[in-house]
Simulated scan of single mutants.
Amino acid sequence: MTDPDVSIIIPHRNQVRQLQSCLGRLIELGYDCHDIIVVDNGSTDSLDFISDYPVQLLHADKTASPYIARNLGIDSTENNIIALLDVNALVEPGWMESALELLNPDTILGGLPHRPDPRSLDAYQRFDYLYAVIDPEEDHPIAALPATNLFFYKSLWTAIGPFREVRSLGDIEWTKRANESGYQLLVDPDVQFKYPFKSGKAFTKKYRRLGGGKAENRSVPAPFWYVFKNLLPPSPHFVRRMHHKNIREKMGLSLIQVIALCYWVKLNYGIGATRYWILKTAPSHDG
């Protein structure tokens, strides 16, 4: 039996099919006994179907940012425990029960995506899985967590402050801020969900967006050096870490593919950051 004092918060923007699947899965597993809050972030698609689901619908239309939506959802609830869930995540049985066994007021807990079958993925998707998913077997402490699937107490969010209202990487900045303030970051492999990994143009777009997020969150102290170093080939350490994980996870990428995709990620981080700085410094034509 899970604690009823939980709010599941799902930011959404023009992903109707994914939202229907996400909500259907939560209901199928009985999690509709909790508060489910969908925060729409300026969709142009119709949301008339939402009345068919036992959820609360909020609107965060100020600007396109999932962190604005998450802040609004968290602020709107009086429940003690927050579960953040991406719209394209499909939770597995025992998802919440496993999380609540480990969660305490001083902890932020993340889940892990279900290991996909590499036979159903192309090289981009396999590498996206290897690079994007936290590796619980690495021996260094976790310094930040993505908001794809997070559990924490609302009191922690109040103490740390809200997410920065940015387009990308606001979750990394927020969890890093929490960690630096003494809160513990954990990942539990039993808090599991299915998640789609990016292919082709979507892969490239993702890593350019994340490069822009690094610039937007001011995590790049020297812009010129950041761009320059991302033009350089990937370091042996980066390649070795990805290839070791590739072998362990049996993703089937060749060493040449791993090297090429490590380089492609770096280049797109640099391109994304450069785009952000160009747009930020461009003169405004308003008025």
Rank of each mutant, 00 (worst) to 15 (best):
P136E: 10
H34N: 13
G30I: 09
L103T: 08
P141Y: 06
W277F: 10
L29V: 11
R17T: 15
N230M: 02
A215D: 04
T204A: 10
N230C: 03
H237K: 15
L145S: 07
E137L: 14
H59N: 13
K205T: 14
T148Q: 08
R218E: 15
A202L: 14
W174G: 01
E249S: 08
P221W: 05
Y53W: 15
L103F: 07
F238R: 15
G73E: 02
I8K: 04
P11N: 03
H59E: 12
P113R: 10
L121I: 13
N268L: 11
N71T: 07
M1L: 10
T274D: 02
D40E: 08
D128K: 01
F152D: 01
H114A: 10
D117R: 05
D45A: 07
E180P: 00
D128H: 14
R241A: 08
L109M: 09
S98M: 00
W225Y: 12
D5M: 08
D128L: 01
L103Y: 07
I172P: 01
R164Q: 13
A222K: 07
N71Y: 05
S65C: 06
E249V: 06
T77K: 07
I50K: 11
T274Q: 11
Q20G: 03
S168W: 10
Y153I: 01
G252C: 06
G30C: 09
A222I: 08
K194L: 03
I10Y: 00
P236A: 06
S235P: 11
I142A: 05
I256H: 15
P189M: 09
I74H: 06
G213Y: 04
T107Y: 05
I134K: 13
Q56I: 12
L72S: 04
I74M: 09
D122M: 06
G287T: 12
V91C: 13
R115A: 12
P141A: 11
L100Y: 09
P54E: 13
H140N: 13
V38L: 08
L261M: 10
T274P: 03
Y153D: 05
D117N: 15
D5L: 08
W264G: 00
E97I: 06
G182P: 03
H114W: 02
R218I: 04
A159G: 03
P66D: 02
D40W: 03
L23G: 07
Y124N: 14
Y195D: 02
S43R: 10
C22K: 07
Q184I: 10
G161Q: 03
S7H: 04
P4C: 06
T281S: 14
S219E: 09
G111E: 12
Q15T: 07
N41F: 00
P54W: 12
T107F: 05
V220D: 10
D190H: 15
Q20S: 05
D139W: 01
N104G: 14
L169P: 03
T274R: 11
I50H: 12
T44C: 09
D35I: 01
D52H: 12
L186I: 12
N149L: 00
F49K: 04
L29F: 09
I108F: 02
M242Y: 03
T281Q: 12
D3F: 06
V191I: 14
P189V: 10
Q257N: 04
L72N: 02
S181Y: 00
I10C: 00
Y269E: 13
